[in-house]
Each structure stands twice: as structure tokens, then as C-alpha cells.
Design a protein around this nucleic acid. Structure first.
Length: 308
DNA sequence: AGTAGCACCTGATTGC
DNA sequence: TGCAATCAGGTGCTAC
């Protein structure tokens, strides 16, 4: 379940490998991996063929490769979403037979020779597509890893992520406190603040001592700020670990392996003692997602009342 | 407009 | 032992 830190680790590893290369061809092993690309697998192949790869960019969990096609500035991107289980793996020289979960294989040309880039995705929620770029509303770079003030069309509605230096902090706090939804649901909404998935949402709320069922509109500005700071804290620490535990060849390892080895304070610990107060952590479903929290030190809606 | 809920999909785990 | 039901989860879409 790659969230922002995992996707950033993938981006940072891909960038030096593929930037400056060009795409010779792509083989699609499962057509559904390009289901969001208009025109299907055949058209997708035509759209990437002979394109040069520029910067590798990320906003939240969305990743894209800027395509250089002889224009002054890029007009298209090859965008990728890892879904729940997407991975990229690369091979220099002659590649092995594609893995059973390989959905697409790109043949690249580099100054050092041929390079193969595989897109693997066991649960098939991930996807690839080629689409046009649209300018960012604020004129700032579209995402991490790029100076280009544009994003793929399908990313335009996604908010800047929690670690984006161009994020509008006051605007994010305001957006968080709108509406009637629980704070857990709001954190998972990528149009409010992006990059947060189910695991880091629980971790951030535990750190901020806010109950996941608290109505987001009931948070004070300072509480909402504390939640955002906690999101940055847990993601920043995870990113630091991901960045040190993987080297440049990380794309050859299982992208999930580093994820679950991290020490989590809340997620997956139902029935275990809270490391802060000792009470047993509890679990329930919120917005259809498994949600973990400490009933003692995460203040929230009181049972039997509507005060939240 | 804002929100809720489901479809999508595979493999691991649990229950009978 | 074998098979079926359940669970996991991010996004995109539809319906209210």
C-alpha cells in the first residue's frame, strides 16, 4: 500500500535511471493496466513510442514521467499510479522473462545501452496512461522532482501533498475544516491534502491525539494544524527510513518490504497497549477502512452524545 | 455541491 | 483435506 513516502522512494530511484533515456517500445501484458488511457493498449503504445523521458515527478501518490517529444517544453506525461501493489523494476542488458505480475514492459535506450523497465502490479489497482499537461493554478512547480509548473490532466484535481513546499498551509487547514465528515475520511480525501493513505492517517491521528471519528469541522485551527504537522512528522520519518534503507537498486527489491518493517504506533495494533498511555488500542471501520486508535489518549466524540 | 457507497482485483487467511 | 467466505485497500465512478 504505497503512500507518499513509498511513492517518493520509487520516484527518487527511477529518476537517475530513466531520465535522459528514450522509449523504444512497450509491451502490455494486461490491457486493464492502461484502462484509463483513451484508446486502449494499441494507442498507448503509439503514444509512448520514440518519446524521450525527462523529469520524474510526484504529487502525493501520483507519479509521472515528463515526455520530451521535440517541443520546447513537455506537453505530455506518462503518468503512473501504483494503486495498492504497483512496483517498477529495471534490468540492464538482457531482461529475464517477465514476472507473472508484470503488466507492462518498456524497452528503453540509454547512452549505456538497453534498459528494461517493468511495471508489476499484483492486485491490478494501479495504472498507466499518457495524457496532456495542464498548467498549475498557482504557477508553482506541479510536483516534487520538477520545475515545470504543470501537471497531468488527471492530477489537476488532486491537492498539493503535505510535504510540498508550495502547499498553502492556511488553505489546507480551511479545506480540512469544511463539511461534515470525520477527520479520518478527510485525511484520505486526496483533494484536501494529498499523499495520505490508510496507514499514515491512523498514525498521524494517533500522534496528534485526535480521534478518527471527530467531525473535521469541530477541529480548531490549531488542532487541524497539529494534525497536518503530525502527517508531516510520520511521513517525513518514513521517508528518511525509506531513503536510507534502499539504495539506487531499490527498484529491484519488493517495494513493500520496507513499509511494514517500520514501527507503527497505531495501525495494525488493535488489542495491543498504546505505547503512550498503556490502554488497549481499538479498531473499527471508518469510511469503509480499517481504523485504529487509542480510546484513552485520542480525544473524540463522546459515546451517547453528539458533541464532537 | 458535498457525501456515501460500490466496483475494480488478487492472494492470504479464516471458517466450516 | 478441500472449498467457500472474508479481508485488505486507492481510486474512479455513480447515485443520492
Amino acid at each position: 500500500m504505497p503512500e507518499l513516502p513509498e511513492v517518493e522512494t520509487v520516484r527518487a530511484g527511477l529518476e537517475p535511471l530513466v531520465s535522459g533515456t528514450s522509449i523504444d517500445a512497450v509491451t502490455i501484458y494486461r490491457a486493464s493496466c492502461v484502462r484509463h488511457h483513451g484508446g486502449g493498449a494499441g494507442e498507448f503504445g503509439l503514444a509512448v513510442a520514440d518519446a524521450g523521458i525527462g523529469e520524474v515527478v510526484r504529487r502525493g501518490k501520483y507519479l509521472w514521467f515528463l515526455l520530451e517529444e521535440g517541443h520546447e517544453s513537455p506537453v505530455n506525461a506518462l503518468s503512473a499510479h501504483l494503486g495498492m501493489s504497483g512496483q517498477f523494476r529495471s534490468f540492464e542488458g538482457s531482461p529475464p522473462a517477465p514476472h507473472a505480475h508484470c503488466r507492462a514492459r518498456f524497452a528503453l535506450t540509454t547512452p549505456q545501452g538497453p534498459l528494461t523497465l517493468d511495471f508489476l502490479d499484483q492486485r491490478t489497482f494501479g495504472y498507466l496512461r499518457v495524457e496532456s499537461l495542464v498548467p498549475t493554478a498557482d504557477g508553482a512547480p506541479g510536483g516534487h522532482g520538477s520545475e515545470v509548473p504543470a501537471v497531468p490532466r488527471s492530477v489537476a484535481h488532486i491537492a498539493r501533498d503535505a510535504l510540498d513546499p508550495a502547499v498553502d498551509q492556511a488553505g489546507a487547514v480551511t479545506a480540512m475544516r469544511k463539511g461534515t465528515r470525520p477527520i479520518k475520511t478527510v485525511l484520505l480525501d486526496q483533494t484536501v491534502v494529498s499523499g495520505i493513505g490508510n496507514i499514515y492517517a491512523d498514525e498521524a491521528l494517533w500522534l496528534a491525539r485526535i480521534h478518527p471519528l471527530r467531525r473535521a469541522s469541530s477541529l480548531t485551527s490549531s488542532e487541524a494544524t497539529r494534525v497536518l504537522d503530525s502527517v508531516r512528522g510520520v511521513m517525513g520519518r518514513a521517508l528518511a527510513q525509506g531513503g536510507t534503507s534502499f539504495d539506487a537498486l531499490y527498484v529491484n527489491v519488493n517495494g513493500e518490504s520496507g513499509y511494514f518493517s517500520r514501527d507503527l504506533a497505531a495501525y495494525g495494533r488493535a488489542g495491543e497497549p498504546c505505547v503512550r498511555c498503556g490502554d488497549l488500542l481499538t479498531r473499527d471501520r471508518v469510511a469503509g477502512r480499517s481504523t485504529h486508535w487509542c480510546p484513552r489518549c485520542q480525544t473524540g466524540p463522546k459515546p451517547g452524545t453528539d458533541r464532537d
